[in-house]
C-alpha cells in the first residue's frame, strides 16, 4: 500500500482517476477535444476583426470584401468542425477511446 494513493487502483472504485500520462489513442482524443474547444474562440476572434474596419468614406471596406471575409471564415469553421466531428466519432468508436 503506497502512501500516495493516486496510483493505487484500489482507491478509485467508482470513477477511475485520470492517469497522468495517456495512451496514444486517448492522447489523440484529448487533443481533438482541445481543438473542438479552441475552434469557437478562434471563430469569435476572427469575426471580431470587422470591429477594426473603419467606417470612413475613403478607405472603407467594400461590401463584397466584407462578405467574402465573413463567409470565408464561416466556411473554414464549418469544414474544421466537420473534420473534428468525423475524427471524434472515429475515435469514439475505437475501443478504449472513452473520455
Amino acid at each position: 500500500m503506497t502512501e500516495d494513493g493516486a496510483e493505487d487502483p484500489l482507491r478509485t472504485p467508482a470513477r477511475p482517476r485520470s492517469p497522468l500520462f495517456l495512451q496514444r489513442e486517448s492522447y489523440r482524443r484529448r487533443r481533438l477535444i482541445d481543438a473542438a474547444r479552441f475552434l469557437p474562440i478562434l471563430g469569435l476572434l476572427l469575426w471580431a476583426v470587422p470591429l477594426l474596419w473603419s467606417g470612413g468614406p475613403e478607405d472603407a471596406m467594400p461590401g463584397s470584401g466584407a462578405l467574402i471575409y465573413i463567409f470565408g471564415i464561416w466556411t473554414a469553421l464549418v469544414v474544421a468542425a466537420f473534420v473534428l466531428s468525423v475524427r471524434l466519432r472515429r475515435n469514439e468508436e475505437k475501443p478504449g477511446g472513452g473520455a
Binding site: G55, S64, G65
Partner: peptide, 19 residues
C-alpha cells in the same frame, strides 16, 4: 459583387458595439 459594391450597401458601415 460589383452590384453590391456600387449599391447603398457597398461599404462596410457597422456600429462596432452592435456588431
Amino acid at each position: 459583387l460589383a452590384r453590391i459594391d456600387s449599391s447603398e450597401l457597398g461599404q462596410w458601415q457597422m456600429d462596432g458595439g452592435r456588431w
